[in-house]
Design a protein around this nucleic acid. Structure first.
Lengths: 223, 223
DNA sequence: TTGTCAAATGTCAGCTGCTGACATAATCTC
DNA sequence: GAGATTATGTCAGCAGCTGACATTTGACAA
């Protein structure tokens, strides 16, 4: 009704009591899930336990989340939404890679406040580590990112006025970009540095490496 | 014993009757799984049906495959093994991206014969389409590829004498490369052209696009 | 307020993927 | 051929997930 058609969540700036209540239980479920996952681990936590800790039936949990994995990655989805919006607002003059880069970096602060409306930031940080070390979650996240990448390809193609089926470049660019983002967050996850700032720097650094990494000539400083 | 230490499958060139039998049932299971998946769909097929069609208990199925998904992606894993071996054999003089590229292209023929020892090629082709359209399989495959990419990073770093933790470039390069491969196979899957040759060409074309896709200046031919 | 409608939730039953434990049957070794 | 290994079968059980139907709760109008 607000004009912002959501992905799967209830409308963000909703009006009625009903909508607000829905949003509340959804947030409560995500938070409860993340708290349990970060303490007992993902596989060590049952959906029943999550539901119970919010005093809701298991069936209700599955009405909010397609799967246990989706609950764990709810925040991730939120972030992707913000990023996509940021990309759409980049000036048309920016070349594709720069637009992607700037969208990531510019959206950073918005994102952390948006996250904080749902869960404490440090909980999210700890959750990232869990994701990075849980195969099932890694797989689910990668699937989500693949869907995201499809949307990115469409957007890039639109910006540049290209046919995303005939022209390979948007797909290739986005694939590379996505890979780099994954590499960055993986790197950040391992370093166990719990700051958003550090994460931002990691992403920036990785993006700046795209050029040098692909244009050979690595061995100048090495041997 | 042949020097090719396998990933999880029984040793390829095994000696005893036991080993050969194991390999036979494993192959039979993969083939049965793929045949059922391609006709009834992945979710429309139960593990019991697969096991039954090979006249084996469900429990045995799970002794061969960690999950239903793993059975669907068994061939994929086989291919990755060949690719990894090919990469290790590339001359040390080749710069990283070229080595990756050549490993893919050079290994192509070996792969198709290796596949054919397990399943008919056209069955594999049809299976690729199923993977591309089944969310659970997409996720599982991406996870597998992520693991593969880690191994690739290690190998590239070794070749170049770099520390894969400190130096970002191997990770970034492999991420980009992996993304491109995914883009290529996705593109091939959509075009529904059932030839290996076409697939090879698609991969080659995509790899050659890496440079142009990243170095901006797209709008020369377009508008 | 009250009554009506729609939407959210609870309850229950059931399927499917997957695993541990133990018994049985097949291969290997001598 | 006897005994040690190893693969397989059987059984029981948990956890994720879904459809169907009953029940409650908020929305809206008379």
């Amino acid at each position: 009704m607000t004009g912002i058609t959501a992905t799967a969540q209830p409308a963000p700036g909703a009006s009625g009591l009903r909508e607000r209540k829905k949003q509340r239980t959804r947030d409560a479920l995500t938070r409860a899930a993340m708290e349990l996952f970060t303490t007992r681990g993902f596989e060590g936590t049952t959906v029943d336990e999550i539901a119970e800790s919010v005093e809701v039936s298991q069936r209700t949990f599955f009405r909010y989340f397609q799967s246990k994995e989706h609950a764990a990655l709810a925040v991730e989805e939120l972030i992707e939404g913000h990023f996509m919006a940021a990309l759409r607002e980049r000036p048309a003059a920016e070349p594709p890679l720069e637009a992607l880069r700037n969208a990531v970096l510019s959206t950073w602060d918005d994102v952390s406040t948006a996250i904080h409306e749902v869960v404490p930031l440090d909980l999210y940080m700890r959750m990232c580590q869990v994701v990075e070390t849980t195969p099932a979650l890694l797989a689910a996240r990668m699937r989500g990112q693949a869907e995201m990448e499809q949307r990115l390809v469409a957007e890039i193609a639109r910006r540049e006025g290209l046919d995303p089926v005939l022209d390979l470049r948007p797909r290739v660019l986005v694939a590379a970009f996505g890979g780099v983002i994954r590499a960055a967050s993986g790197h950040w996850g391992k370093c166990a540095d719990d700051s958003v700032e550090q994460m931002r720097r990691s992403v920036e650094e990785h993006i700046n490496t795209i050029g040098p990494a692909l244009t050979g000539g690595w061995r100048a400083p090495g041997a």
